[in-house]
Design a protein around this nucleic acid. Sequence first.
DNA 1: TCAATATACTGAAACGTTACAGATTGCCAA
DNA 2: TTGGCAATCTGTAACGTTTCAGTATATTGA
Lengths: 348, 348
Amino acid sequence: MDRRITKKGDDDTSGKERPTLKTLAFMTGLGVTTVSRALKDAPEIGAETRRRVQLVAKQIGYRPNRAGVRLRTGKTNVISLVLNTEHELMSFVSDIIYGVTEVIADTPYHLIVTPYSRSQDPLDPVRYLVETGSADGVIISRTQPNDPRARYMLERGIPFATHGRTDMGLVHPYHDFDNYAFAGEAVRYLAGRGRNRLALVTPPVGLTYHGHTVAGFADALSEVGASEVPFNTVSIDQSIEQIRMRTAQLMRRKDRPDGFVSSAAAATLAIVAGIEDAGLKLGRDVDVVSKQSSELLHLFRRELLVVNENFRLAGSELARAVLGWIGGADPGTLQSLSTPSEVLPYRG
Amino acid sequence: MDRRITKKGDDDTSGKERPTLKTLAFMTGLGVTTVSRALKDAPEIGAETRRRVQLVAKQIGYRPNRAGVRLRTGKTNVISLVLNTEHELMSFVSDIIYGVTEVIADTPYHLIVTPYSRSQDPLDPVRYLVETGSADGVIISRTQPNDPRARYMLERGIPFATHGRTDMGLVHPYHDFDNYAFAGEAVRYLAGRGRNRLALVTPPVGLTYHGHTVAGFADALSEVGASEVPFNTVSIDQSIEQIRMRTAQLMRRKDRPDGFVSSAAAATLAIVAGIEDAGLKLGRDVDVVSKQSSELLHLFRRELLVVNENFRLAGSELARAVLGWIGGADPGTLQSLSTPSEVLPYRG
DNA sequence: TCAATATACTGAAACGTTACAGATTGCCAA
DNA sequence: TTGGCAATCTGTAACGTTTCAGTATATTGA
């Protein structure tokens, strides 16, 4: 701990040291308390004093010491993004992070990333954050219908937002993509192209949006009079190889589907590979509608049909929601649902 | 600021409040100082006392208050990862983050993500971190041969590690992928397949690894007696559309290349699209060797030749390097270079 | 035996901030 | 003139930690 040993007296206005309230107090000739209150526009400070203090503060580049504030008030000025380090799919994460940072950029908030791995209880990192008071707000993903993490944070009264909805009859901020609508649109589009034996590659079982997707798929199937080819052995957080292999198996059967709905771009790559392994051709023998988060799938195979999901937007919305809750807004008003783009046809 | 109003006296051992040194001191009947020193294995504390304190601490789940430590010592227990929120390519970022978190998982460190955008001076976020003392260590990427950020941090004596090397004659920790070797391998492999008019799709101009890549490419070209088809109008952080268009233009010329070396997977998608736009066929008219960070390119076109770069490893190495430096190790010993995998041929 | 010294512990101060409970001044009503 | 009150400002304490400068007791050397 080699701290500066400069024993600075009350008269230190000179130098290299970072300015504190004390520095400002000395420079303005006011008390520390007055300076503190002047900086936060407290009403009992004279208008001129206030302006004077703020001017000086700006001039010398005063920035409140985070540790001081945090120790005194308990306010951390930290938002934590809790991530599963194994499942989360690729680009997904960076987009969310960018979205979050975009929003907190002109706030005093810092973003910390709190990881947990497959082996751990997803509640662990959340418990850690709450118990140690490490964040003012938390963002979680991989939300479940009955999510212990949401329940836990609700009980402790710590602001949070979930990526995806819960279904516990409890109200809290969330942002979600309308996967019910996505699956429905996908089915209707495929039906419009004459496809009527459809398979769904679902989100991970257990997550809320799995249910939404399955429901949207099923409802639209019966609406258009198409039928489902069960493909329950596969979900998007399996390995590429597994999905590819299972798809190939499926496509070699006589009762194979003529259309796929896929919930993730990475899975779609594997599905297409599986289809081609079976000697079939995309666009001729089978159509695939896939969600994607970056506009790359059409480069992969131009016959792919895509729906865009904007994770950067999700990140921003989630950040806005947590900040809103921290700021005292009604959690019920901090919920948003993102509507899928239309299904985009072949690219020439 | 609704703090608990429980006015806890010195005798508070009961309740909900998070335990502090004071709590431990009361429970053990020792002084706060003794407890503090006992917990960090100070030599002037009796062996038994030490064990006793540590036992009690473990039992009641004592965790040092970060704000207290930080205020007193200046130690933040924070590592900051500084990211460009516009350029950084997709999956890249999440892998690095995962790599970093993997390493700091069983340390007291938190990871904060500090963003900056295209419009800003890359030095800004670093200056912010250093001036506000917001982190004990910093990780930066997009490293340049003469990098003002590295110079700045070196001057201030704040530990950091760079993703990529500098070339200033200054020694500091880094992790880098051997892009010289990569480009060389790629050229030799293409030459082995009879390709001898090669184009290079470079990393962003100005970054150190651009130079490494170009040099590796050039040296290997003359080694195998192949020639370069200049393609300087393109680098990997341009838009997909631009790369695609320019590639198509290039491939319609009579003096078109019969081989590409691409420094990034996303760019490779665009290159292949451009090649096909020009009516040519991958593997027949032209071969492409590409770096990739997730094993997906072979699904895209099985004719692609790939070299893997492990960003998760990079994240881990960078974290280890910063922690090492913070821990007092010699920066010169905290440098690592990752060797490319061999060029992987077509997948059946 | 006495002093010197090692061992084991301790209180007070400080890091920078905010909340609380005043203190000082000027002004007005009674 | 006095008391009251509003408007401004201020000192002290506290958040939890570590460091400094001790204190008290036991142990050693001569």
